[in-house]
């Protein structure tokens, strides 16, 4: 396993979360160093987006602790965590449709990064420039195409001035040249020292970009290391060969029984 690039920025200790019988996080533990560039893969329903919800504060874990920048943030809400430096994108873009692209980014700069007036305008323009959205600045976000919507998700998260950026399938549904553009943007963000955790189904984009790859299945990590090594693991291969349904059933069975046991006691 490669050493983290810096001191721990984010640490998850035994984080648990389930929706009814569906376990999305089963004693998850994870550390991300400052400036790290980490990829996460896994089958649908593995708990990838829920993991981001737990880190960003949209979901409350039922057990475990989350530490960011040396401070426990488990009890803080999404607003507070954003202001501390956790930026996130949503798998299904959530633009402020009635606002222009510029206004979308501006509200993130002013609220997330705490800038005002002219400094906030300059910061917003700089973010739009970096994400290739300057030409669309005055267009209402609801009129954007898919690529621009994905870019706006990244731009808005970036505008909050994060130390940790959570990217949730920003390359999904895009053509190869568009994916290449996004990869360039993500590399640029990482090069400036922002730690990036990137969930992606478009594997070639991910493996070409990240230094470290995690595989999440059934709420637990089944692989963690260099991308090529992780993808060569038999457990990971099994998941990606399309046998994940049976595999996760086998895994989930005893765990579910276990969880119910604990509840009964």
């Amino acid at each position: 396993m490669p050493e983290p690039a810096g001191p721990d920025l984010l640490r998850l200790d035994g984080v648990c979360k389930s929706f009814g019988k569906v376990v999305v996080a089963d004693r998850l533990s994870l550390t991300v160093g400052a400036g790290d560039l980490v990829g996460i893969v896994g089958p649908n329903g593995a708990g990838k987006s829920s993991l981001f919800g737990l880190i960003a504060g949209d979901l409350r874990p039922s057990a475990g602790q989350i530490v960011f920048a040396g401070r426990p943030v488990t009890r803080l809400d999404a607003t507070a965590r954003c202001r501390m430096g956790i930026g996130r994108t949503f798998q299904v873009p959530r633009p402020f449709g009635g606002m222009t692209v510029l206004e979308n980014v501006l509200v993130a700069v002013q609220q997330g990064a705490g800038l005002r007036r002219r400094p906030s305008y300059a910061a917003a323009a700089a973010v739009l420039d970096r994400t290739g959205l300057l030409g669309d600045a005055n267009i209402p976000a609801e009129r954007l195409g898919l690529l621009s919507r994905k870019r706006l998700e990244v731009a808005r998260a970036l505008a909050t001035g994060p130390d940790l950026l959570l990217l949730d399938e920003v390359a999904g549904g895009l053509t190869d040249p568009e994916v290449a553009e996004l990869v360039t943007i993500v590399r640029g963000i990482s090069a400036q020292g922002v730690a990036v955790v990137w969930i992606e189904h478009v594997l070639h984009a991910l493996t070409a970009t990240v230094h470290r790859l995690l595989c999440l299945a059934g709420g637990t990590f089944i692989g963690d290391g260099a991308p090529a090594e992780v993808l060569a693991l038999p457990e990971v291969r099994e998941v990606f060969l399309g046998t994940e349904v049976t595999a996760s059933l086998h895994q989930a069975g005893p765990r579910l029984a276990d969880g119910q046991d604990r509840e009964d006691r």
Binding site: F90, R94, Q110, A157
Partner: peptide
């Protein structure tokens, strides 16, 4: 004012607004 931008963001998407640091 700055609050107007916040209000419009909350109007359009409350979850999105929280994710960019809006104190809803």
């Amino acid at each position: 004012s700055r609050i107007g931008l916040v209000l419009t963001a909350v109007r359009d998407d409350e979850t999105g607004a929280r994710s960019v640091g809006v104190r809803v």
